[in-house]
Design a protein around this nucleic acid. Structure first.
Lengths: 272, 272
DNA sequence: CCTTTTGTTTCATATTATGGAATTTATATA
DNA sequence: TATATAAATTCCATAATATGAAACAAAAGG
């Protein structure tokens, strides 16, 4: 996810979030004060004070021996609340369950978050497949992978270009995706109405996805399947796309701002 | 979870975390600036600045119309990382899967976090049962419910009393638990070696749990089943306790500080 | 045991966050 | 549609807060 470091009239907060990101992205065994100081380019004392305040609040945990910091339990609690709250996950859960049960495939709900696509929920099918985004909470730049691509493709053209401009560097990290290739994929997605990956990003693992759109805002999420590419057939694609479209059609009215008072008070998650 | 408001040399952070907690605990439709100002007893402008900085960083999301704040996608991402990282969840995942598959029961992994017990992972069995802690991320004060109780009971006596002292007010919120009752439950748990709830906290829903302990620190987690109390039998209890103990026995060596270099570099999650 | 490295505490300083007031924007009412 | 009310946002002089250099303490390494 993009590491904004905005001067937002709250320097201390900017620094705290930066440190959380560094801990999140750092060594799996936890980060030492020294490493964090260096990476964040902060003074030892300052860094120490922030880290310990975060630990105090449960946002970070310190080892028993107190020499390494890692993400804390409060983040787990807040994260679970963020996912379950009102919004996409709750709204789409029945659809996700149905799709997974009827198809037996791994089914994914992705949401847009600024320039990224985050996995909000996932139901595993009969096969355990490696997906691009991994489990819940995993993310990819908008454009990478079918769930993500289906959102990018259906954004307003100007916004799409802005996102692409910002995302190119990160997209370049995927050897399977050149600029031309992605352009072609976007065009295909628009004309077909769904995004398809035949197994090029994660070898052997294919995916289909359909965007969930809100009138003014554009796509806010996507619903899709992850499938062993060996099993992929055009008949299957057709059938699955139809199933996804049906579910999306029954979800979208709940997200349309005009209908808000008429439908449930659900709101969408993942908007800036 | 206890709302520490420690003057930790980082006022701004204290305030930011307080606001996150208020948003997390507040109305499911999101919190307005006004409401948050009042509850946090902060100046409107100050509050506004902090909330927007948090939103800027993705820790909060603002509605499309920008009048309500709710938990942001970044919390979901960080929360997932906190859960998956090295530590209890990964370490216990195989055990959890085995226990659930072999018994068909809802299986829970709880971790200690200060004075609380947090649900770190959960595998649903054949029945969908309402549990005390709900899903992942849910928490209860130490002492409430078998998973939580099994940890409290096996803490060092002095520490246990300190925790109890702090927790009484919150425990009082559970009508099924009087002081005497909890004292009795703790004694029972110690003598039996496992915690049992026959369905008194959530009517009709029983639970068994066994603590996961680390040599110096004491219990850091617990593994347990949630069962329809109607189906509970003493034979079943015996069998399930044995299954839990077997798994715990194979987990504990990985957590023992002495063995750390010998075993995997897994560390525990949820220590203060 | 001594040396080096890493973590913690202190405190005078100035940078940063603060909050009262003014302005803009949205919502409710006539 | 106009008007009143309330909420959100921006501004800026002020003071309180976070800062970081340095001194200190505690581990790790030799």
């Amino acid at each position: 996810m993009t590491n904004h470091t905005p001067k937002s009239g709250a320097q201390l907060l900017d620094r705290a979030v930066l440190l959380l990101d560094l801990v999140a992205g750092g060594s799996r065994e936890g980060m030492t004060l020294k490493a964090l100081c260096e990476q964040a380019e902060l003074n030892k004392a300052t860094c120490h004070r922030i880290l310990n305040s975060l630990a105090e609040h449960g946002m970070l945990d310190k080892d028993p021996d107190g020499r390494r910091y890692r993400l804390g339990t409060k983040l787990l609690v807040l994260g679970a609340k963020a996912a379950n709250g009102p919004g996409l996950r709750s709204l789409c859960q029945p659809a996700l369950t149905r799709l997974c049960q009827e198809s037996g495939e791994t089914t994914m709900l992705m949401a847009r978050d600024r320039d990224d696509s985050v996995c909000i929920d996932r139901h595993d099918g009969s096969f355990l497949l490696q997906t691009l985004t991994g489990s819940i909470g995993g993310y990819v730049p908008l454009g990478v992978g079918p769930g993500s691509l289906s959102m990018l493709a259906f954004m307003a053209a100007d916004e799409r270009e802005e996102v692409l401009e910002r995302n190119w560097p990160r997209i370049a990290a995927y050897p399977a995706l050149t600029r031309d290739k992605l352009r072609r994929l976007i065009d295909e997605t628009i004309s077909q109405g769904y995004a398809l990956d035949r197994g090029e990003l994660v070898p052997g693992v294919a995916g289909i996805a359909v965007p969930i759109r809100v009138a003014e805002t554009g796509p806010v999420a996507s619903l899709g399947f992850t499938i062993l590419s060996a099993r992929l057939s055009s008949e299957m694609i057709e059938r699955y796309v139809q199933a996804l479209r049906d579910e999306v059609a029954s979800i979208e009215p709940h997200l349309n701002p005009l209908d808000r008072r008429l439908t449930s008070p659900e709101r969408i998650l993942g908007q800036s």
